[in-house]
Amino acid sequence: MDIKIPYNEDLRPDTGLYNAKLGIWLFLASEVMLFGGLFSSYILLRAGASVWPPIGLDGQSVAHLLEETIGLATFNTVALITSSVTMVMSWVSLKMKDISKFKMYMWITISCAIIFLIVKYFEYSHKIHEGFIPAHDTYMALYFTMTGLHVLHIIGGLFVLVYFVMPDGIKMWDDEPIRFTNRIEVFGLYWHFVDLVWIFLFPVLYLLN
């Protein structure tokens, strides 16, 4: 016997929400506190440092390398913003019942996410190659931890994105179109949030040094 949970796809009259929408906002609330903790620590550690980025034990500072990576980071910002707009477009396509457009926008979103990860890989390996590992100084530690956690969010999101366009995920569109549209909306909220975090990480870690 399977139980039907109320308001899984229809809206509860007094809150005007379906369950997953409330759930994802609560999840995002905890994410705000997660990244809030990171930013708070960033401010504290930066305020305690005499120079920023600090000079490591080898007498070097990552400052010169950062100038070079601004280009890559800007490119990545554009990639994420693009993926965000295509994400919202794929949701709109579902609302217009246009499944082929939905698939197209989803694939663009996926490509952007993959491009982001590839660029990130080059960025990381370049820094590590030059000896700027997390242990080098507190800036590098924060840089790898904060972007690393963000990348984990991208990777997690990427798996879900791919699942949605695979036959297994998309078949819900035929059975329960409303629920599928809700899923895309809720996932979209997460994806935009990841984009939003990057919007703050970008100036904080790359530009304002």
Partner: peptide, 20 residues
């Protein structure tokens, strides 16, 4: 309901930024 959650979270977020 969503606005309330965001409001509460932002208040606690600001408290968190109080640490430094």
């Amino acid at each position: 309901m969503v606005y309330w959650i965001i409001l509460v979270t932002l208040v606690f977020f600001l408290i968190l930024l109080f640490i430094p």
